[in-house]
Structure formats: structure tokens, C-alpha cells
Design a protein around this nucleic acid. Structure first.
Lengths: 135, 135
DNA sequence: CTGTATCCGTCCAGATACTG
DNA sequence: CAGTATCTGGACGGATACAG
């Protein structure tokens, strides 16, 4: 029972303020430096802290902790502690987390498909700007 | 002719480093505070600077300028200057910009559908954390 | 191993004032 | 109207050291 459209401001058929703020909110969360990377990396099986850290390659311990906490807070990942010695903590995507993967992957596909196009546009823009600057 | 899958690192069938970095890059760009909002607001017809500013409601002039420049640089919007008096500048989504709307809307739908779920998770988490803190 | 605490430099966003 | 310039506070990310 997935609603086709949730509730859009008044009559306007194309999403407006409320709608966009929501999108914006989620994208802000999702768009931070590491969250999506971690979500995708988690994939289907649970993983340990350092395992993720190695995969992410470049993330600091601090940032990984913060990122995982954020994802946990949003109900996207679960955190399971095994009080062994040394301690072991497993992270795993929740159903919600896995469901997020779909639209994110779609965006990822878009990114890959249009990457060259965007980079060309950037080069062109930078050149234009540069020329202006040197006049 | 949209490729099902572009090129994923070696054998692994689930996206890895390269893949993820790309997604991450785009999401970072897309995930900043105003870009997506502006893209969605632009919709199908061109709009003027202050027109967008009014719709965005809360964005500063500076941020709107920077956001639009960024989008223009990435080839997502065009900027048309009419040297009238007073000057008039129209912004419009490019084909690339419009194509971005689709995955973004998908994410938006996801956000709307799961908003309550996420907020519940947040409340639960905060409560748990709070309890721990007070012990 | 899996964190937390602290320090610190950088970037970013907002406010304000000014310009073509 | 549509910007640019400048200043400033705060958030963010990284490095490091320490703890359970």
C-alpha cells in the first residue's frame, strides 16, 4: 500500500515548499560525506567496525563512529555488541536501511551515466570563468 | 540505450569503492542544503532570481547565488541574462537538470514514505541515549 | 577491538553593505 | 533586479591520545 502521492501543498500538482523541505532534509542527512558510502558498503551482511573502516578507506575513526551513530539513530542500521574480549560490534542494515539503497542506487546510476557530461560542463564553465577573469 | 550497469570494480557484483565514491561525490553535491530544493523549484519553466529566492524562502541572497552558480557549473541549469534595465536573469533546468529530477524525486518519495518511521527511530534512540546518560 | 575526549584548522553559511 | 565583497560565528573533519 504505497501511496502514489503523500500530500502536496494545496492545489499545485508539482511539489512545493513542504515537499521540498522534506526532500532537502533527507538529502542533507543522506548527502553527508560518509553516510551513503557506509550504507552501500554495508550491503546485505553485517560487518564489524574496523571492517567498514578498511572498506571506506580514508574515513577517520571519529567520523565512522559519528556516521554509524547517525545511521543508527535514523533506524537505518543496527548495532550489536558482543561483550567478548576483545569486544566485537556488528553493524547491519535494517529493512529501512536496505530500502534506502534502492533510490540511492538509482541516484548512483544517474551519477555514473552523467559523470562525463558533468565533468565536461565543469571544465567548460571553469574555462569561461577563467577567460572572463583574465580580461 | 541506458546501460543496466556501467562498470563495476572487477568481479564483485555489488558496487565497491570506485562506485561508491562516485555516488558519494554526486550526493555531496546534490545533498547540500539548497541545490536540490532549487532544482525541484525550477521545475519545468524558467524563473528569475528573486522569484526563486521567494520560493526557497529562507535562503540568503549569497547562498542562492552560490547554489545557482554551482548548478550552472555542473551543467544542470542555464543562466540567461537580459541586459534590460533593470537587469533580468532567467534560470532554467537543462535536460541534464531535468533528468536529475527523476532519481531525486524517487529519493523524495522514499523520504516522505519513511519520514514517520525515521522520526520514531530518532525519538527512540534519543530516549535510550538519554536514559543511559542519566544512569 | 571499539570506541570517547580533546584540540585545532578549515570551510561554510548568514548578515550586512555596497555596485552595476 | 541581480548580484559582489567582506566579516564573523559555528559546524565539521582530521589527528591524536586515552579508555573499557
Amino acid at each position: 500500500m504505497i501511496p502514489e502521492r503523500i500530500e502536496v501543498t494545496s492545489e499545485h500538482h508539482h511539489p512545493t515548499h513542504d515537499d521540498c523541505r522534506r526532500v532537502s532534509t533527507i538529502l542533507t542527512r543522506v548527502g553527508d560525506k560518509w553516510s551513503v558510502l557506509v550504507v552501500i558498503l554495508l550491503g546485505d551482511d553485517s560487518k564489524r567496525f574496523n571492517e567498514i573502516k578498511r572498506m571506506a578507506d580514508g574515513i577517520s575513526q571519529r567520523m565512522l563512529t559519528l556516521t554509524l551513530r547517525g545511521l543508527e539513530r535514523d533506524g537505518l542500521v543496527t548495532r550489536t555488541i558482543y561483550p567478548t574480549k576483545p569486544p566485537r560490534v556488528d553493524y547491519e542494515l535494517t529493512a529501512l536501511g536496505r530500502s534506502l539503497c534502492e533510490p540511492v542506487r538509482a541516484l548512483g546510476m544517474w551519477a555514473q551515466i552523467h559523470l562525463a557530461e558533468i565533468e565536461d560542463a565543469r571544465r567548460a564553465f571553469d574555462q569561461r570563468t577563467e577567460v572572463e577573469g583574465s580580461v
